[in-house]
Simulated scan of single mutants.
Amino acid sequence: MAALDAWIEGGSRLTVRGRTLFVRQDGPAEGPPVTLVHGFPTSSHDWAGVVPLLAEAGLRVTTFDLLGFGHSDKPRGHAFSIEEQADLAQGVWERLGIAETALVAHDYGVSVAQELLARDQARIARMAWMNGGLYPDLHRPLLIQKLLHGRLGPLLARVTTQARLTSSMRKILGRPVPDAVLADMWASVAHDNGQLLAPRLLKYIDDRRRNASRWTASLEGYPGPTLFVWGPADPISGAHVLERIRERLPEAAIEELPGVGHYPQVEAPAETGRALAGFLR
């Protein structure tokens, strides 16, 4: 997995609808487009172990840091929303000339993808989902996430440290991850004091509840090829979510990764990359 500094060096800043976002494109320019959308609280660097495998498979891979994450703009006092993140994703596609794309979404990115599907299914050629709160009633956030989402959130955000983030991450990972990878996660979060934005970014939980019916319909009504690459050992969105997926989407392909937790692309990049490449090609 490429170190964060190398990952950032391989991308660029793109102004989209008045915001500056960190964006990367990898793989052959003529390859079938695929867009990867990361989760909370990290960044597009989560995909660094998977992108080379997709590029080698001939895919044109677009990754970007969502607003408030990684090396994209981190506006203070801003009311972040999933709807705005979907606007910016569409803006990235417009700026890069991407008319149709396969879409891979993880965690927070799952909600962005559901909003994008609700807007325009025809633009999404294929859809791959990875551990995230597809169904709000099944979401099991960590205690620290509940606290950051509540009245004490701003205070807790100010005392968030690398050690605390690392401890939280290890609670949701099923397989060992090198310390250097977790250090890079913290560096993405803490860039431009981004840890202070956690309470505002976690308002996506409210967006998810408010849009539950619409987003569930976009998930279950999508007619295109669908794949779930899932870590069942995830305490937040693990095996219990797979049960409903199998019930509600019996035609979808499922790649269950034994012993993997919340971050399949980080915990098992080779397995995740192979599963995605085979599906996306």
Rank of each mutant, 00 (worst) to 15 (best):
A86D: 03
A99T: 15
K146R: 15
L88Y: 05
R140T: 11
L148G: 02
V104I: 10
L143H: 13
T101R: 02
G132R: 00
L88N: 03
I144V: 14
R119C: 06
P154N: 10
G97F: 12
L155V: 15
E100D: 14
E100G: 14
V110E: 09
D107F: 02
M127D: 01
G91P: 07
N131Y: 03
L152C: 13
V104K: 05
A125S: 15
H149W: 10
L152Q: 13
Q121G: 11
L138Y: 06
L117I: 09
L143Y: 10
L103P: 00
G133W: 04
D87G: 05
T101P: 05
S111R: 08
W129E: 01
K146H: 14
A125L: 13
R151S: 12
R123Q: 11
A118N: 11
M130K: 00
L156W: 03
P154F: 09
L96I: 05
D107M: 01
R123P: 01
V92E: 07
H106T: 08
R126V: 03
Q121K: 13
L103R: 04
E100A: 14
H149T: 07
W129H: 04
L147M: 12
L116T: 04
V92D: 09
A89P: 00
K146D: 14
P141R: 06
R95P: 06
H106R: 09
L134S: 01
L142S: 10
R140P: 05
D87V: 04
P141Y: 04
I124M: 12
L155S: 15
L156R: 02
V104N: 03
W93K: 07
L116M: 13
A105C: 13
I124D: 00
A102S: 15
I124F: 10
S111D: 11
A122F: 08
M127P: 00
N131W: 04
G153I: 09
E115F: 01
L156G: 04
L134N: 00
G153D: 06
D107V: 00
H139N: 14
V104Y: 02
L155A: 15
G91C: 09
N131F: 07
V110M: 07
G150E: 07
W129N: 00
A118Q: 06
A86N: 02
Q114R: 13
L143T: 15
W93N: 06
D137K: 13
S111Y: 08
Q90L: 13
E94M: 08
L96W: 06
E94A: 15
R95L: 14
P154I: 09
L152K: 10
A113T: 04
L88S: 05
E100F: 12
A89I: 01
P154M: 07
H149L: 08
R95D: 11
I98E: 06
L103H: 06
Q121W: 12
V112L: 06
E115W: 02
